[in-house]
């Protein structure tokens, strides 16, 4: 039996009235239950794609089906299956969080008694219950972001789209938000995430698409994508100032400051020869870590490669 994809985007196009082509025929598929990362630099088309999927932006061409339901021909039925956590705060700041959640459920046709129960449940789960009956204006930035997650959960959607939900949120709250969303995903909700914190995408998501200049430039599993990275950079903290660096074949060793070295090498290269050479040179390594997360390195390379290709084509 074939599984109906949670999201099936087919040749989706969007050209704005000012002539900007934000999407130039995007196609991608997200399977039910997936935790899917949609990444791309600023202005790549992520928000336009999410806007179309949540019916806030009209597509110029193509279609998207949510669990088999077309957003173009069956908008209402499709929207019933989607929950959106947008990038910008978009609730009424003069209303109370409890009312914002209950009203949101009402827009989805959920009776008030059920809505009140759900509002209490999700506001408690997102640690907002003590603020539930205060004006939304009084919430901190992190609380406002959590309120938008609680609001999106009011309809208990099968597909939850999160557009940079942790932007500007401190690390502690960010972690609690991911814990909540991971639990929602584990319970069966398909999650699509866009974020600029790539280490989070690497940790949380199983599949990934990278969009740039309105086109999908990569769409694969996180494992396969990370396997493409053939070079790694390690940061080494050394015990004494290292003035002369040994030459290690296959390793580019550079000095960052008196007590810090960087070693860039192929993933195939073993670390033993590096440590042997450092040891011979009288350099004691106290600790070692990856310079950046692997996904970030890949992301930058893919986008830069795309930009170089576009430059050549334009030339």
């Amino acid at each position: 039996m074939t599984t109906i994809p949670a999201l099936d985007v087919v040749e989706l196009k969007k050209t704005y009235a000012n002539g900007v082509a934000a999407l130039k025929g995007v196609s991608l598929t997200v399977q039910p239950g997936d935790f899917f990362a949609l990444l791309g630099p600023n202005g790549a088309g992520k928000s336009t794609l999410i806007g179309i999927l949540s019916s806030l932006v009209n597509a110029s061409g193509g279609d998207a089906r949510i669990f088999g339901v077309s957003i173009r021909t069956q908008r209402s039925a499709a929207m019933r299956l989607v929950g959106l956590v947008p990038q910008e705060i978009n609730f009424n700041l003069f209303e109370r969080p409890f009312d914002i959640c209950v009203n949101q459920a009402g827009f989805y046709g959920i009776p008030r008694a059920v809505a009140r129960e759900r509002a209490e449940k999700y506001l408690k789960e997102l640690a907002l219950w003590d603020k539930a009956f205060e004006s939304a204006r009084t919430l901190s930035g992190g609380m406002k972001r959590r309120l938008m997650i609680a609001r999106a959960m009011m309809s208990e959607p099968r597909l939850l789209i999160l557009d940079e939900p942790t932007a500007g949120v401190d690390i502690e709250i960010r972690r609690s938000m991911w814990k909540f969303i991971s639990a929602i995903n584990a319970a069966g909700t398909t999650v699509i995430l866009t974020t600029h914190y790539l280490e989070e995408a690497e940790q949380l998501c199983r599949n990934i698409a990278i969009i740039d200049k309105g086109r999908i430039i990569e769409n694969t599993t996180m494992k396969r994508l990370l396997a493409k990275l053939d070079v790694e950079t390690f940061v080494l903290d050394v015990a004494e100032p290292a003035y002369t660096l040994p030459v290690v074949p296959g390793v580019r060793l550079t000095q960052v400051d008196e007590f810090t070295l960087e070693a860039e090498m192929s993933r195939e290269h073993d670390l033993n020869s590096l440590f042997a050479a450092l040891s011979q040179g009288g350099i004691t390594v106290r600790s070692m870590r990856n310079k950046a997360n692997r996904l970030e390195e890949l992301f930058v390379r893919l986008v830069e490669a795309g930009a170089a290709k576009t430059g050549k084509e334009a030339a």
Binding site: Q74, F107, G109, I110, S155, P157, R158
Partner: peptide, 23 residues
């Protein structure tokens, strides 16, 4: 389609009337 709608709704009240009342 009906099954999906029922699943998403999980309620028997007319969703449009509930939404109208909410606004």
């Amino acid at each position: 389609m009906q099954a999906l709608q029922e699943e998403g709704r999980g309620m028997s009240a007319n969703p449009n009337l509930v939404a109208l009342g909410t606004i």
